[in-house]
Design a protein around this nucleic acid. Structure first.
Lengths: 327, 327
DNA sequence: TTGAAAGCGATACCAG
DNA sequence: CTGGTATCGCTTTCAA
């Protein structure tokens, strides 16, 4: 491994001068800088981040906490985060937490042991071991958190309910996401707000998780436990798809007999048959903006925008019945 | 931050003794060990990994290189990798490379600057900046690589072709994955092997990427450029889905008029309408086994199994026509 | 069995 | 402007 000493020796200057030249800090004469640059190039030298991080007590790493990497919503967020932090010279330490709070705390510890510069988390809740690490929450936020990026879940819930009503809902089932996840609760409120306003009857089917593995059996459970509904507001696209698949198995026609709306607009939702109508959240932007916010928190003292809300939109496709314009 | 010196002071021993006690290296008396353990607990001390890593010239981090985190195949691999490395006390530095070889080299450099213990890559090709880092390739491997984990792509290609033939293929289109990716080439060979044996006519449609964003237009292109085919072997499930969606738009019935088989068995493929018949690769296991292999390479001197091949299986669902048993 | 001390590779203070 | 040197927190000789 080539070190700063090798560079200093080859350039005929001290390590202090090399360090200053590399970091553009303090005074370095033009001639010294040139000698250093030449030596750096010749030796193909890149400074060791570990040594730097030890001295600075702060590395160029950012911890990324995700609830479930197999749910396409989170890789999309991760990509946004990655693109932004890369531009700013950081890299990501990955923590896939799977709703396991022990695992989450373990990761926070590991982050701390690695002098992480900050953490960005899409996991619900306030970590205990956070200490003083700069922290930004994405999507699954809560009231006490200072720095958050999320989308307008209340509006999303309203849009979904309105769309279902436009499709002439007689009786709707709301598949409500896990109760401990703020986004689910807020969306549910949005759903109810509109449904109540139009006095459309609904039942709530509470789900315990957003996880893929449970989607199929949950869809079955909905049909087994509930009846005579003609509309479903699914907790996310995965559950929406599972529900449609199950409906087809039971010979129920979508959207004629049963209309379904999802949430998230996963990349695959438009490739379904029929393509899934859903509420789109800007996952990539949530990640990108979140990383931007974190970088600002880490690098500046004051940040103006602390809680950022991004818009949601209704993506009309083919799992909802047509609105009768002339009625 | 509490350091090893604080522990030493509280325990009334030297830092050397604390270090030995923590690492179970060298001699430590029972009484000293107890004092250290007590102090560690009292101070809630966890050693700084950066300092450790600086001295050892090797961190507890593993670099993970992925071609495209938004393709569900790779998060599944990543999860397998993560589960295994966690058990062994490592964490993951994430590098989403997006087919950009400059980005890949940049990550390798970052890995090196962080004293990474090893790298595990699902990206095609041999990195230039690899130096002496232990390296394991997953899925997109090549002949020269010493440590690889992949699935049996030739058999996968054969199974797909055989399944298509069983569905009474008259004219088949093979959507061949990118030519620079070994797995695509081998699968194509497997396809041809069977198709030639049964003298079933086929055309090859070459795709440039496995990427989601291109799936729709690629599907359109297949229909625009080729005609009179009744069977498609898609390069992966994403392309299979896009193709089916496009077929539906054109009023073509699947599987009656057009049968389609995918590759990978993504989590969503079973939730389609109709559910997608495909070749299943054990993505999670590829990741897990790959991480296991890497850990063994890093920790032992000799590893017996260097190139691990995992099985593939045909997952029969509903996008292929029925085999006529009585004919 | 223990502890003092020399690093690991970079940064930053301070004297020159 | 430049260079010597202490320092970050931990591991590992080496002498006691």
């Amino acid at each position: 491994m080539t070190t700063i000493r090798d560079v200093a020796k080859l350039a005929g200057v001290s390590v202090a001068t090399v360090s200053r030249a590399l970091n553009n800090s303090g005074y370095v004469s033009i001639s010294a800088r040139e000698k250093v640059e030449k030596a750096v190039k010749e030796l193909n030298f890149y400074p060791n981040e570990v040594a730097r991080s030890l001295f600075q007590k702060k590395s160029k790493l950012i911890g990324l906490l995700l609830p479930d990497i197999t749910n396409p919503f989170f890789p999309a967020i991760a990509k946004g985060v990655e693109d932004c932090v890369n531009e700013r010279g950081y890299s990501l330490l990955l923590g896939n937490v799977e709703g396991d709070s022990e695992k989450q705390e373990k990761y926070l510890r590991i982050f701390e042991q690695n002098n992480i510069a900050g953490v960005i988390s899409a996991v619900q809740g306030n970590p205990i071991n956070l200490k003083n690490m700069p922290f930004v929450s994405l999507d699954r936020i809560n009231e006490e958190q200072k720095y958050v990026v999320h989308s307008d879940d209340f509006l999303g819930g309203q849009l979904a309910a309105q769309a279902i009503i436009d499709g002439k809902a007689k009786k709707v089932v709301i598949m409500a996401g896990p109760e401990n996840i703020s986004a689910s609760k807020v969306r549910l409120k949005g759903n109810k707000d509109i449904l109540d306003r139009y006095a459309v009857p609904y039942e709530i089917f509470q789900t315990e998780s957003f996880h893929l593995d449970l989607a199929e059996e949950t869809a079955k459970a909905v049909f087994n436990q509930l009846s005579e509904f003609d509309s479903v507001i699914a907790s996310n696209d995965i559950y929406g798809l599972a529900l449609i698949t199950e409906a087809h198995k039971r010979g129920i026609k979508v959207p004629e007999e049963l209309q379904v709306i999802g949430y998230d607009d996963m990349p695959f939702s438009k490739m379904m048959t029929p393509p899934l109508t859903t509420i789109s959240q800007p996952a990539y932007e949530i990640g990108y903006k979140g990383a931007e916010l974190l970088c600002n928190v880490m690098e500046r003292d004051s940040v103006t925008e602390k809680r950022i809300q991004l818009p949601v939109t209704l993506i009309k496709r083919e799992t909802l019945r047509e609105k009768d314009e002339h009625e």
